[in-house]
């Protein structure tokens, strides 16, 4: 059984779901079922604990692991405060850190994110920092106690795919905690590609939420992530960019050796 051990839990589904942007929270149960996701992230800013009618968490299967996120935080301090509120409200000890100071592209601030990671890991949170794929920052986040790092494929909501592929590949090679590709994945094929590269999981929100049929799209992503993971485990042969003559530079050795 291919199990992902992460944040003190064991999971089998490597697709994580973001819950913003849906036309109705009532779509969530169907989406969760169709995709088989076990980890669901929720922006704490959207949760109204005082309003049972609009209580989004009611739509999330109790079996799922809740990963509250700190969307809206502009500094490490704000992220830490949001994380503490989430835990105190009974949302568990997983937290996805989002510290965004840039409202134009919604790109994360790695420095503030690292600071929040340090504080929250010490407080016993399983910390999942959303980050720009930078090797030094990822190392520091790992050393600070992050449960995983979540590099972006391209800016949030852009659906532009794995534009940061080379940098993510380096993280996968160099960082010995799970790498979860978060943000920018617009199509199931891109999710599969991230998994084939060796990502531990992918997080998808926009591409599912704004699809014409979110439930069907969720299922497609579930399948793609499984396919990509399987391909990674199967060890695909080296792929060459183009066909080449067998040994244009060292062929002479064979000739002289004969």
């Amino acid at each position: 059984m291919d199990v992902l051990r992460i944040g003190g839990k064991e999971i089998t589904s490597r697709l994580f779901l973001g819950t913003g942007k849906f036309s109705s929270d009532s779509l969530l149960p169907g989406v969760i079922r169709a995709s088989g996701v076990q980890v669901v992230t929720v922006a704490l800013r959207r949760v109204d604990f005082d309003n049972p009618q609009e209580y989004m968490l009611n739509y999330i299967d109790r079996e799922c692991i809740l990963m509250p996120n700190t969307s809206g935080a502009r500094t490490a301090d704000e992220a830490v405060r949001i994380a503490r509120i989430a835990r105190a409200a009974g949302c568990g000890n997983w937290v996805k850190i989002e510290v965004i100071k840039d409202n134009k592209y919604l790109l994360p601030d790695n420095y503030e994110t690292l600071k929040a990671t340090e504080t929250l890991a010490k407080e016993g949170f399983a910390v999942f920092p959303y980050m720009s794929p930078d090797l030094m920052a990822a190392r520091q986040m790992r050393d600070a106690g992050a449960a995983a790092v979540m590099p972006l494929g391209s800016p949030i909501g852009s659906n532009r795919g794995l534009k940061t592929k080379e940098l993510i590949r380096i993280l996968i090679d160099e960082i010995d905690i799970p790498i979860i590709v978060d943000a920018g994945i617009g199509r199931p094929s891109e999710a599969a590609e991230a998994m084939e590269m060796g990502a531990a999981a992918v997080l998808v929100n926009t591409a599912i939420a704004v699809a014409e049929d979110p439930v069907a799209m969720a299922e497609a992503f579930g399948l793609a992530v499984r396919a990509g993971r399987k391909a990674f485990l199967a060890g695909p042969g080296a792929v060459k960019e183009y066909a080449e003559a067998s040994s244009p530079l060292t062929g002479f050795l064979r000739d002289t050796e004969q």
């Binding site: 036309s23 109705s24 929270d25 800013r45 949760v47 109204d48 309003n51 809206g72 949001i82 509120i85």
Partner: peptide, 16 residues
């Protein structure tokens, strides 16, 4: 808003 296929959102911030 629901009739238009959109979700009405009442809360989108955390008072800190």
């Amino acid at each position: 808003i629901r009739k238009q296929g959109y979700q009405p959102v009442f809360k989108d911030w955390v008072a800190m």
